[in-house]
């Protein structure tokens, strides 16, 4: 443990001697919509700029039907043959996920359907913890991600998001904002770099 003691000792000897208290961080969300509809609209707008799709269910449309409508032509195979892993009661799926699965076993999933813990209007982000993911890797190895989001669970901005207790309780908490992306080759934006190729958010309260 000598490196530890050496490093801490050097820090104590070298750190600038000044009294610099931690600042109070304001919430900066006075100008956000106060109602759920307004926040949802802002969320949808910001999600779009990050490459995500907002899909509001039409009257009587089930989530299953919405999957088919939004993803059928993106799969490169008939929708009926798609491997769908669902963690939500709204969609049956054809691949069960359990928390004892080997992470690599989900590599062939075409569509993963998950419920977000909450959303952030400022950026159009959705949040998951291991509780929603079951197999964390499925949110990255799947080709397409469909996220159910309760419109009542959208916070205004980042400051509000970090006031939630998920970060203190969960082992893994992640914000997804649109699909995997890269602009590493000549600045050209490519969706679906290493992770999912598309991310669709469907606003719907839990059953």
């Amino acid at each position: 443990m000598s490196a530890r003691d050496d490093i801490l000792g050097a820090i104590r000897a070298n750190k600038p001697a000044m009294n610099a208290p931690a600042p109070v961080v304001p919430n900066y969300d006075d100008s956000y919509p106060q109602d759920a509809d307004g926040l949802a609209a802002l969320f949808a707008e910001r999600l779009a700029t990050m490459g995500g799709t907002w899909h509001a269910l039409t009257d009587g449309q089930g989530v299953d039907a919405a999957l088919q409508e939004t993803l059928a032509d993106k799969l490169g195979k008939p929708f009926e043959e798609a491997v769908i892993a669902s963690n939500v009661p709204e969609v049956a799926g054809n691949r069960a996920l359990t928390d004892s699965d080997d992470p690599g076993s989900v590599h062939d999933v075409d569509i993963a359907v998950l419920r977000a813990r909450f959303g952030i209007a400022e950026t159009g982000s959705v949040c998951f913890t291991e509780a929603e993911l079951t197999v964390n890797a499925v949110a990255y190895l799947a080709q397409h991600l469909v996220v159910l989001l309760d419109p009542a669970e959208i916070v205004t901005n980042m400051h509000r998001a970090y006031q939630r207790d998920d970060f203190v309780n969960a082992s893994y908490t992640v914000f997804h904002t649109g699909p995997s992306a890269t602009a590493d080759i000549e600045g050209v934006l490519v969706r679906g770099a290493q992770g999912v190729r598309s991310l669709t958010v469907i606003p719907t309260p839990p059953l």
């Binding site: 964390n136 970060f167 082992s171 893994y172 904002t177």
Partner: peptide, 30 residues
């Protein structure tokens, strides 16, 4: 709560995007 400040600044400063596509918080082994 400090993260709110830094996440709001990081990707906007870096690439001019509001946030990186993934912001991942690891607190314990899976």
């Amino acid at each position: 709560e400090d993260m709110g400040v830094f996440i709001r600044l990081l990707s906007r400063s870096a690439l001019g995007s509001p946030i990186t596509q993934y912001t991942s918080h690891f607190r314990a082994p899976k």
